[in-house]
Amino acid sequence: MVRISNNLVGILNFVTFLLSIPILGGGIWLAHRSSTECEKFLQGPVIALGVFLMIVSLAGLVGACCRVSWLLWFYLLVMFVLIVLLFCFTIFAFAVTNKGAGEVVSNRGYKEYRLGDYSHWLQKRVSGTKNWNKIKSCLIDGKVCKSLIDDGANNNTLQQFYQKNLSPIQSGCCKPPDDCNFTYVTATNWTTTSNSSADSDCGLWSNDPSVLCFNCGSCKAGVLQNIKHDWKKVAIVNIIFLVFLVIVYSIGCCAFRNNREDNSYNKYPRRYP
């Protein structure tokens, strides 16, 4: 008689296996059509996730439904490691996103962001040339500053622009820092002026749409603010996912015990007088 725990593990892993197919397919599709650094940056993790889910779900499915104890043992081992890693990542995510926030500027609808306000670990992740080039490529491909122009900001007066509710990335990457005191022309076009500002970002600003302030520390800070916001959401989702994984792991342990009992019964059947 098939045990309930084995059926549950089989159903859950069958659903996971079905989910892994479009994920893997999406990664392969990206690999074939990727022409930018951003797309190449995404294809590896997507393919790896798809392959991982497919292998683990197959191990759980076959192990539970076909009573293959060693596959179910492998499945439980991976699940245990995943639970530990997710728990550690959740704690780590809350720790590294505890620092950093936008600076409120008087009479502005947006905030200013400074790289030094964020955790050193996050700063190192974006400050490296290799990593930042990939992130910058994604920002340019995503046309984050073009969306600011499309919103009609280029037709605004200076005071109207100051009242706009810019996203952290738009504030950090699409305009020069307020400390530079540049002369406003349009949302992404500013006339540089000589000033005594110690902000090194002022010298990095360019009206070239492909440059703007993408090399500025404020742009990196804007990205980190987005990461901080997203990581906190992910950490909350992880807590819910961890509870789910623990429940699945417990069911899997019952299925593994059932397999061992059945295998033991088949190997040493009871003899009646």
Rank of each mutant, 00 (worst) to 15 (best):
M1S: 01
M1N: 04
R3M: 05
S5R: 07
L8R: 01
G10V: 00
G10R: 05
L12P: 02
T16W: 03
L19F: 07
L19T: 05
S20P: 00
I21M: 08
I23F: 04
G25H: 13
W29R: 04
W29H: 08
H32S: 14
E37Q: 07
F41E: 02
L42C: 03
L42H: 02
I47G: 01
G50L: 02
M54L: 13
L58D: 06
A59H: 07
L61M: 12
L61S: 08
V62P: 12
G63Y: 12
C65I: 06
C66L: 07
W70Y: 15
Y75V: 03
Y75N: 05
V78E: 02
F80P: 03
V81D: 04
L82V: 11
L82T: 12
I83W: 09
V84R: 02
F87M: 12
T90V: 09
F92D: 03
A93H: 13
K99T: 06
K99Q: 12
V104Y: 13
K111S: 15
W121I: 11
L122I: 12
R125N: 15
S127D: 15
D141M: 01
G142Q: 02
G142K: 01
A153N: 04
N156H: 10
N156G: 06
L158I: 01
F161Q: 03
C174E: 09
P176N: 09
P177G: 12
N181C: 00
Y184F: 10
T186P: 01
T186E: 06
T188K: 05
T191A: 10
S194W: 09
N195L: 10
N195V: 14
A198F: 15
A198N: 15
D201M: 04
G203F: 00
L204K: 09
L204H: 00
N207A: 00
N207F: 00
D208F: 00
S210L: 00
V211Y: 04
L212S: 07
C213H: 11
C219D: 08
G222Y: 04
L224N: 01
W231T: 08
K232D: 07
V234Y: 08
V234W: 07
I236N: 13
I236E: 13
I239L: 15
F241Q: 14
F241G: 14
I247H: 01
V248S: 10
V248W: 05
G252W: 02
R257K: 11
N258H: 12
R260F: 08
E261I: 09
S264A: 15
